[in-house]
């Protein structure tokens, strides 16, 4: 009943599902990483580099990167549409919201590109 062009999936179910799936990815990643850190004892640069440079880890890192970006976007999009509205900003609300959302979007895009460069750039 409400149409919204700036939500990620432009569909509530889609956004909701992405939010949940990305949360699971982030949780699994964090658990895996903590597990690795605990098990690997004294960690040196070589081990770390080899671990991060392995193909499975590169894929995991990429997934993590996209998950964080998607999760952040959906979450912050909700926050902006909750708080940056006509109730607080009157007629200027749409402009304010658009600027903030675009800033967040650009920032997340930069992170993704930068992250991809870090993960896959050394290959």
């Amino acid at each position: 009943m409400v149409t919204s062009v700036t939500s990620l999936g432009r569909n509530g179910l889609y956004d909701w599902l992405i939010q949940r799936v990305s949360a699971v990815v982030i949780a699994l990643y964090v658990i895996g990483m903590v597990g690795f850190l605990v098990c690997s004892g004294d960690l040196d640069y070589g081990t770390w580099s080899a671990f991060m440079g392995s193909t499975p880890m590169r894929i995991a890192n990429t997934l993590m990167l996209f998950s964080v970006a998607a999760h952040t976007w959906i979450g912050l999009w909700s926050v902006t549409t909750d708080y940056l509205t006509g109730m607080t900003f009157g007629k200027a609300a749409t402009g304010v919201r658009l600027v903030v959302q675009m800033a967040i979007a650009l920032l997340l895009l930069v992170y993704i590109l930068w992250g991809l460069l870090m993960i896959w750039g050394g290959a």
């Binding site: 009943m1 409400v2 939500s7």
Partner: peptide, 11 residues
């Protein structure tokens, strides 16, 4: 189909 958007229910 009327509840599928990001606001109506998913808020």
């Amino acid at each position: 189909s009327r509840l599928d958007d990001p606001f109506s229910l998913f808020r």
